[in-house]
């Protein structure tokens, strides 16, 4: 029975390493920042989670196993957020989409979004800066 769990864990680890490899291939082959992020977030997240799950199965319910499960939770919660931040930052820094891209709704709406943001900042209550100055 322990052997069976061990084999399943090994299968998870092998599959995870394969998906990590595909993700890295995507980083090299795909044309621009945004497409590369797609490969980095999806393949590498699943690959890493799969490796951690395999580790958890092999180690069992001891210190390392619980830590591996917690790491899965953290990776799943943080990887998309960081990808989202990088993509938004890249777009705002003026990096164009690849020339083969078919549409860019975000740059069409950027001016309106910026105006909205500006209005929100203007309406925000006075900052403590004024207090320190007086």
């Amino acid at each position: 029975m322990i052997d069976f769990v061990h084999v399943v864990g090994m299968v998870f680890i092998g599959g995870g390493v394969a998906f990590d490899l595909f993700g890295c291939l995507g980083l090299v082959r795909l044309p621009d920042v945004y497409n590369r992020l797609q490969a980095a977030t999806k393949c590498v997240t699943l690959g890493t989670c799969s490796v951690l799950l395999g580790t958890c199965l092999i180690v069992g319910p001891s210190g390392g196993g619980w830590r591996a499960l917690l790491c899965i939770l953290f990776v799943v919660l943080t990887a998309p957020v960081s990808a989202h931040a990088i993509a938004r930052g890249a777009h705002r820094a003026g990096i164009r989409l690849w020339e083969g891209s078919v549409s860019d709704a975000y740059s069409e709406d950027r001016d309106a979004l910026n105006a909205k943001q500006q209005a929100r900042n203007d309406n925000a209550p006075a900052t403590p800066q004024t207090e320190t100055r007086t």
């Binding site: 082959r29 795909l30 497409n35 989409l97 083969g100 891209s101 549409s103 709704a105 975000y106 740059s107």
Partner: peptide
């Protein structure tokens, strides 16, 4: 490389 990227 069958991609057709864009923002929607």
């Amino acid at each position: 490389l069958p991609i057709r990227p864009g923002i929607v």
